[in-house]
Design a protein around this nucleic acid. Structure first.
Lengths: 217, 217
DNA sequence: CTCCCCTATATTGCATGCAACAGCCAGGGG
DNA sequence: CCCCTGGCTGTTGCATGCAATATAGGGGAG
């Protein structure tokens, strides 16, 4: 999102990757000096990065007590999916309404294909990454400039990854089909269709999560 | 929102107040040293505050080029109202569904009364403040912990103030009536009703904005 | 033996010095 | 006369020193 070549940005990116990659487990304490040494930076950019991650909801910062990686309860996840179910269908509909450049459509289709192969080969981590990019691209295509920033706080990939881990093959195939169908609806410039498919997509994901008890890898 | 007694928080609050109060006009340059001297602080907390305000969308920070107060185009305002129209009815419905403590209902009613007197006396700035608190309280009452942070980026009071300036007496009375009705719907624990009223409330505001050409005070 | 308070320590938060980068004005060349 | 280039200045960005605060552990009183 905000990716200058500054040290604070690299700190942000690295920490984000570490958290999302599971290298930093939820609840883990994040000491500024330790992170600074690990990243080869000073405390200042690390501190700024922690602040941004706190705004994103990925870490929680307590005054004078430092930062910890956020841990998610079932109700947190439910809240997040409620918001996504609200915002992403809107994004899809808006993209369909205002129209999307052919190059972007091609990129979306490419991501669909990549996701399908990743799903077929059981590469769930790869799939989660591609899925995030797909949704992010679609949100950008909505043309509402405030939407991407809003959704960063609820588009955390570990949740998606967890979702995919709980999918059975049929649900996975449905999910891939949804992606294809959203792109088709946008290409057809049918907002209602696009929103409807996206809603189905997210509701099915949410249903999958609440159905499966809990199974942390 | 995040209000410890730290210097960075006071810087954030002060700057926010300055911008929202019109003391810092849109487009104005925000030099760190100057602000630090004005607020009697060092550059560090000022810098952190600017970062947060940037995340809120109130200022835009350009790498190595400093921060400026954001200026809003008509389409920005339209985007913001689209998102509010999406999220706030959801918040109202959720509050109605999960129920709201009687103390909170009393507070909401108190704000309604205060807004009505402010409207009667033409105290539009006061009205805008009260209005913001009313909506913020309702968003908190939704029980979705991520919603308040999401909406800070679109709940900027100057927009609301501008909205009120364009209201004619009838529209103003309708707006006050909407507030009362939302509280009633929540008290009656009727989600559909609450969402519907809130949607009307926001659509009428948006209509008012797009109808009136432009009239900066 | 248990509970409370007090001190020691580690960490955050703030201030400030130094380096790097963007913008600007002057000077020279075409 | 205009454009381009080079240094100069003011700002941001980063590093680090110092002060303030929360936590943990031990010692004393009940």
């Amino acid at each position: 999102m905000a990716a200058g070549n500054r040290a604070a940005d690299t700190a942000y990116t690295q920490l984000r990757r570490m958290i999302l990659g599971g290298e930093l487990t939820p609840g883990a304490r994040l000491a500024e000096v330790e992170l600074a040494q690990t990243l080869g930076l000073s405390r200042t950019p690390v501190r700024e990065a922690l602040g941004r991650l706190g705004a994103d909801g990925l870490v929680e910062v307590l005054p004078h007590r430092g930062a910890r990686v956020s841990l998610w309860t079932e109700s947190d996840i439910a809240e997040i999916f409620e918001l996504r179910t609200l915002l992403e269908p809107y994004a899809a509909a808006r993209a369909a309404r205002i129209g999307v450049a052919e190059t972007v459509l091609a990129e979306l289709r490419g991501l669909c294909a990549a996701m399908e192969t990743a799903a077929a080969e059981g590469e769930l981590a790869e799939l989660a990454q591609l899925n995030s990019r797909f949704h992010a691209l679609l949100i950008d295509a909505s043309g509402n400039g405030r939407l991407p920033a809003m959704l960063t706080s609820v588009m955390h990939a570990p949740l998606i990854l967890g979702t995919f881990h709980r999918y059975d093959p049929d649900a996975l195939a449905r999910s891939m089909g949804h992606h294809r169908e959203v792109v088709a609806a946008i290409a057809a410039r049918d907002p209602e269709w696009a929103a409807s498919v996206m809603r189905s997509h997210l509701r099915s994901a949410a249903a999958n999560i609440s159905a499966t008890p809990r199974e942390d890898p």
